[in-house]
Design a protein around this nucleic acid. Sequence first.
DNA 1: TATCAACACGAAACCGTTTTCGTAACAATT
DNA 2: AATTGTTACGAAAACGGTTTCGTGTTGATA
Lengths: 338, 338
Amino acid sequence: MKPKITLKDIARELEVSISTVSKALKNSEEISRDTKDKIQAFAKLYNYKPNNIAVSLKNRRTKNIGVIIPDIVHHFFTTVISGIEKYANAKGYNVLVCVSNESFDREVINMELLANGSIDGFIMSLSSETQLKKDYNHIKEVTQQGIPLVMFDRVTPEIACDKVVIDDEQGAFLAVKKFIESGKKRIALVTTDDYLSVSKARAMGYEKALKSHGISLDPSLILKLPSMEVEEEAFEAFFSDKKVDAVLCVNEIFAIHAMRLVQLKGKRIPEDISFIGFTDGLLSKYAMPSLTSIAQHGEIMGEEAAKMLIEKVEIETEEEQFSTTVLQPTLMERESTK
Amino acid sequence: MKPKITLKDIARELEVSISTVSKALKNSEEISRDTKDKIQAFAKLYNYKPNNIAVSLKNRRTKNIGVIIPDIVHHFFTTVISGIEKYANAKGYNVLVCVSNESFDREVINMELLANGSIDGFIMSLSSETQLKKDYNHIKEVTQQGIPLVMFDRVTPEIACDKVVIDDEQGAFLAVKKFIESGKKRIALVTTDDYLSVSKARAMGYEKALKSHGISLDPSLILKLPSMEVEEEAFEAFFSDKKVDAVLCVNEIFAIHAMRLVQLKGKRIPEDISFIGFTDGLLSKYAMPSLTSIAQHGEIMGEEAAKMLIEKVEIETEEEQFSTTVLQPTLMERESTK
DNA sequence: TATCAACACGAAACCGTTTTCGTAACAATT
DNA sequence: AATTGTTACGAAAACGGTTTCGTGTTGATA
């Protein structure tokens, strides 16, 4: 048990002042070669490392960035974290992860906790409850304090900040186009309620693609789940009385679930019914049959968000100039479509 | 843009001393009701929140715990984080996540970075490279500094600290027992090289179960992959020339992969060949057929690790008393076995 | 009336750095 | 010999809190 050595310890031991030690370790011109050599050697010998907390307090910079996500078990979010980590670490930043668990209250608590000096900036994706409540005061407060913020994926126009999203509408459009071009006519959409920004955009893309191909919208072909939870009965009911030949799902889980259901009913994928999901994760890759999927490029999204944030953190100008980066989704074709 | 208000600001505004403000906000007995009311009202009005960094510096406590994991996209680890987060947040701690990405160097860098005051304690799982190199100096240094450490899942006897693991040997034993009891004879094991502590234990359980049921070990039925990467050709080769009727895989991915392969070869699961995997994640649940799996209870593991750590962090005694919690794995039976 | 708690508050040290500014010692210049 | 300029270092303030201790003002007590 050897406690950390401090500047003061070195100063006492070498009979110089604390400031001399500090400067010597920074290789300051002010200090003579001899003294620097002596101090640096001593510091290395005792493995001196400056205390991050003290440095943070002094510099008013923590080199930490706070990430608030709705759910960490969801594959998409982990890929985003992965991207954030990668970029942030390369720039010497640590990543503080907080999970809101789709809860408004936890989102507020986490933000307030981190906002009190623990981090230099936020990267976040809204919890579903927050999007439902439309209460963004906790976020506004943070931005008003001048803490840089980047939102990704689940964003809102009500907050002025940098954003990075994929073109969800375009993603859905691509998927439906794919269906239509392979001869499908009765194309279903399985989605969540509209309050989730991304679901809304995807529904728009779905409608647009139908319209632009001269297919009229049949509202009975849209299944809206109240949350991201899979509701067995709703699926059961929807797929037993509808005659559909293609299904677009707003996430992997819905898609896998639906595929399983129709396969048990004896239908063949993709001959009888095709599937496309959002979020190109492990589930899509390993499903049987593997699932054609709209890749959201989470890792790139994370890197981009981290890049935008760190830029804002390190720049000192006061002018508020925000931008939104829109990533293009890509369709990963697999066995569930032909 | 309104910068944060500090004690000093309040003191100046209300014409009292900083110490009075500090005490008043902590509801100290020393301060009169009147003054406290006035100060507390003012603080609430201006939404005063103490600066975490300053408090940390003073108290030498950050209320942060550092988590270092090999990989964040791996479902098991995210469930562990989830558990850690849950317990830690309830106790008022933040979680700093760093990903070593299975690299020794990144593990070292991350630990050194966090050890300099950013966190009160570590929770970690070894990177595969570290287990391969058997170089634990960076970890020893941290423990020697008196920073509490809890290791989970991928641990080593070389470090004296609290640990939480599942009984991997028992997990494998259960799986093989299940195979044997349902009449399987030629039971394969798909694993990674032995340097991964968990793989080793699982192989032990596999051998033990065979032995205790009077089946002799056939080394040709063991496929050892050099890493966690799926090597297509190795799988292909292994499954084309071996006659196996059951396969135990040390993770989900291997299992899903193998299942797909044998299904393409026209075999039926579980009639012709049964499968069991480790890590009871989404993939197991949604595979076709769904995969019988040994649940590692990641969330519980995370909660337990956080609990052990925070206990150590908050206790002040010097005595070093370490314990290892062994969680019992459970077999989640699904369609891939009968 | 002198003494003494109790009360209510402030001064100052402290956590471990960084950084500005002041200055002693010496050399170089006129 | 007086002035100026370097060089090499130290003192001290600052970051934003917490906490110990000291003290002026009361009212009660002997």
